[in-house]
């Protein structure tokens, strides 16, 4: 991605002549100044409102703060991992329905996929939190957040898996069938593994969405990173600093997940180049 971006940029702006070079230098200096001014203004805001005060930030020097945030993060990661796993399972099931030989099953698969993709996660959360208990469906707190997040992601997982399966060349199926393999064996042993490899990067990216959605855990009072942040805030009376740090933690983890996805994509591309 990075390389492609610089390629297209080089193509958009041809090698600069002396006048263009001068303009770029001036614009670079001006934009640096503008960014510096912006940063200074923000910092000044923090300063004049007293938010740079030691008492808002000193809590981050104590190990217990980080241990507590770490516990919250562990809760977040557990919920995200469970939701991710269930989303993959549901997604697989939805995809199999959509690819089934029976028209009615295909239709159900498509409808459920659209429902999953067209309804906000929060609405699913409210369903399991407010509506389901009235029908006697009482989930443990953990699943009250993990299950709706999983359901909400499963539709996209199904579509991603389906696009992977569709990307596998038809010749693969034909070759396997001509070897006398059964239809289901062809799918699970030949087609699906290849399709899965195609879309592994997209499946990893989907975890970012799952992890982000677990921040709604406070709705059901599950102790995740966000929830523990609230406890810290009421203990230390340091709302701004704690929420900023917590937001940064989320951003960092998701950034790393995205890098992992890019890494998987590059590895696959390299593998292809090698095979050729």
């Amino acid at each position: 991605m990075k390389n492609a971006n610089s390629d297209i940029r080089r193509a958009l702006y041809e090698a600069p002549g002396p006048r263009a070079r001068r303009r770029i230098v001036i614009a670079t200096v001006l934009s640096l100044a503008a960014i510096a001014v912006l940063a200074a203004l923000i910092l000044r805001r923090f300063y004049v409102t007293g938010q740079l005060d030691r008492r808002y930030w000193s809590l981050f020097t104590s190990a217990s703060t980080w241990r507590f945030l770490g516990e919250g993060l562990w809760g977040t990661l557990k919920a995200a991992a469970a939701a991710g796993a269930v989303a993959y399972l549901f997604g697989l099931a939805l995809m199999l329905l959509r690819l089934s030989g029976t028209r009615a099953l295909r239709w159900i698969g498509a409808a459920l996929t659209e429902l999953s993709r067209g309804i906000p996660t929060l609405l699913f959360i409210y369903f399991f939190f407010l509506v389901a208990p009235k029908f006697g469906l009482k989930l443990p707190t953990f699943w009250k957040i993990a299950l709706p997040v999983a359901i909400s992601a499963s539709g996209t997982v199904a579509e991603v898996l389906r696009s992977g399966v569709n990307a596998v060349p038809k010749g693969q199926t034909e070759a396997a069938v001509s070897l006398g393999m059964r239809h289901s064996a062809v799918f699970f042993k030949i087609v699906f593994p290849q399709g899965f490899r195609f879309v592994l990067p997209a499946l990893i990216s989907e975890l970012v969405i799952v992890l982000k959605d677990t921040t709604f855990a406070y709705v059901v009072s599950y102790a995740d990173l966000m929830q523990n942040a609230r406890v810290l805030i009421s203990n230390y009376d340091a709302l701004l600093s704690v929420y900023l740090v917590v937001a940064l933690i989320y951003i960092l983890i998701n950034y790393l997940l995205n890098r992992l996805s890019v890494f998987a994509a590059n590895r696959r591309k390299r593998g292809e180049a090698f095979n050729e």
Partner: peptide, 30 residues
């Protein structure tokens, strides 16, 4: 991000990383 002006590119890349990775609830709370 496409401009030949490096600080703008860095700023924009940073912007994208922040807002594509921050959870909606966290941003709203902030």
């Amino acid at each position: 991000r496409l401009s030949p002006i490096r600080p703008l590119r860095v700023f924009a890349d940073f912007y994208v990383q922040i807002f594509r990775n921050i959870p909606g609830a966290a941003l709203l709370i902030l």
